Amino acid sequence: MTVRKVCIVSKTARYPDILERFAARGWQAEFRTLSARPSEDEVLAALQGVHGVIAGPEPYSRRVLESLPDLRAIARTGVGYDEIDVAAATERGVAVCTTLGTNDRAVADLTVGLMIALARGIVPAHADIADRGLFQRPNAIDFSGKTVGLVGTGAIGRHVARRVRAFDCAVLLYDVTQDPAFAREVDGSYVDFERLLRKSDFISLHLPLSPRTRNIINTDALMRMKRSAFLVNTARGGVVDEHALWRALSDGVIAGAALDVFEKEPLVAESPLRSLPNVILTPHMGGITAEAMRRAALLAAEHVHHLLEGSRPSSCINAEVLDHPQPIPANQS
C-alpha cells in the first residue's frame, strides 16, 4: 500500500490538528520551513518524494515541477497562483487548487480600513505623536459620501462595495464581466475604465494579475484621476506601475495611495515609495487574520485529501487534470 506523503510549507497553515487529520488516515505529514524568498533549489530540496503540498508563495516553475515526479497536488493557502506554472502542472498531472472564499471578507475589511486611514490621515498623525512628539491635526476629509471606484467585482470587490455603501458612498464598477443584479444590490453603476478613473475619489483594485491587467494603473491612468483621489491596491503588485505611482505621488498628481501588495515582495529597501508621506505600506496582510488563515488551512488540507484519494475537490484551477488522474507513485524503500 502506498502511503501518501504531504508537506505543509505555507507559514499560515501550521496547525497541529491538520497533521493529526492526515495521520489519522495513515498518511505521513509534516511541516517544513522555507526561507522568506525561497529559491527553486530550496523548494526542490524540501519536497522530494512528496505527493501533496499545502503551499505558500514559493515558486513552482516548470523546472521545479519536472524535478518533483511524485507530486500530484498543490493547494495554495490563498487565492493567487502567480508563482505556479499551471500549464506545466497540467502537463505533468499535478492538480492546482486555491482556497477561494476563505479570506475575501478579511481583504475587504483591510481595504476599507485603508481608505478611511487615507481620508483621515491616521498614519501620519500617529507618526507625528509617536516619532516626532508633535500634537497637530492632519488635513483630513470625510470618507462618508465619497465616490468609490472598484476595478474588479469578484468576491472581494463585492464585499468592499457592500461595506462602503454603509458609509453612503457612491459606487462605480468596472469589470470585463458585468453583473447587473449585483450593481442594483449596491446601488452602483458599471462604467468604462476611463469614467471610473475620472469620477472616483477612491479607486480600489481587485484584479488578478495577467498580461491584460499588468500595469493597468500606469502613468496615463494616474493622470486621468482626480488630483484629490486616492488609490488602494490589495490585489496584486504587478497591476500597478510602481515607478509611475511614485512619480504621481511625488508630483501631486493624486493625493495618496495605500499598498498592501508589491511587484517584488517584500518591498525592496531601496524603493522610493518608502520615503513618501502620502502613502501607506502594509506587508501583504489583507487576508491574514486568525480566522481567515484557519479557514484557508483547513480548505487546503481538504483539497489535498480529495486529490490524493482520487475524488474531486470543491474547486481546481486546472480541473482537466481530474479527468485523467495520474497514479500515486509507490513509496521508495
Rank of each mutant, 00 (worst) to 15 (best):
residue 1 M to F: 08
residue 5 K to P: 00
residue 7 C to D: 00
residue 8 I to G: 00
residue 20 E to D: 14
residue 33 T to C: 05
residue 36 A to S: 15
residue 39 S to E: 11
residue 39 S to N: 11
residue 41 D to V: 09
residue 42 E to H: 08
residue 45 A to P: 03
residue 46 A to I: 03
residue 51 H to S: 10
residue 53 V to N: 06
residue 60 Y to D: 01
residue 61 S to D: 07
residue 62 R to W: 05
residue 65 L to W: 04
residue 67 S to Q: 14
residue 68 L to V: 04
residue 70 D to I: 04
residue 71 L to W: 07
residue 73 A to N: 04
residue 75 A to Q: 05
residue 87 A to W: 07
residue 91 E to H: 10
residue 96 V to G: 01
residue 101 G to M: 04
residue 106 A to Q: 00
residue 107 V to H: 08
residue 118 L to T: 01
residue 120 R to Y: 13
residue 120 R to D: 00
residue 126 H to M: 09
residue 126 H to K: 05
residue 126 H to L: 06
residue 128 D to K: 10
residue 131 D to P: 00
residue 135 F to P: 00
residue 137 R to V: 12
residue 138 P to Q: 12
residue 138 P to V: 08
residue 139 N to Q: 14
residue 148 V to R: 09
residue 151 V to D: 01
residue 154 G to N: 12
residue 154 G to R: 08
residue 161 A to T: 02
residue 162 R to W: 04
residue 165 R to Q: 11
residue 170 A to R: 14
residue 175 D to K: 03
residue 179 D to Y: 11
residue 180 P to I: 05
residue 181 A to E: 14
residue 181 A to I: 05
residue 182 F to P: 03
residue 184 R to I: 10
residue 186 V to H: 01
residue 186 V to A: 02
residue 202 F to C: 07
residue 206 H to N: 15
residue 207 L to F: 10
residue 209 L to A: 06
residue 216 I to F: 11
residue 217 I to L: 12
residue 217 I to W: 03
residue 218 N to W: 13
residue 220 D to P: 00
residue 228 S to I: 02
residue 229 A to G: 12
residue 231 L to F: 14
residue 232 V to P: 01
residue 235 A to H: 06
residue 240 V to S: 13
residue 240 V to F: 15
residue 246 W to M: 02
residue 250 S to H: 14
residue 253 V to Y: 05
residue 260 D to A: 05
residue 264 K to A: 13
residue 265 E to V: 04
residue 266 P to S: 06
residue 268 V to C: 09
residue 269 A to K: 10
residue 274 R to W: 15
residue 276 L to Q: 04
residue 279 V to N: 00
residue 282 T to A: 08
residue 284 H to E: 01
residue 289 T to W: 06
residue 290 A to F: 07
residue 292 A to Q: 03
residue 295 R to N: 04
residue 297 A to P: 02
residue 303 H to T: 03
residue 305 H to F: 14
residue 310 G to F: 15
residue 312 R to E: 13
residue 316 C to R: 06
residue 320 E to F: 14
residue 327 P to K: 12
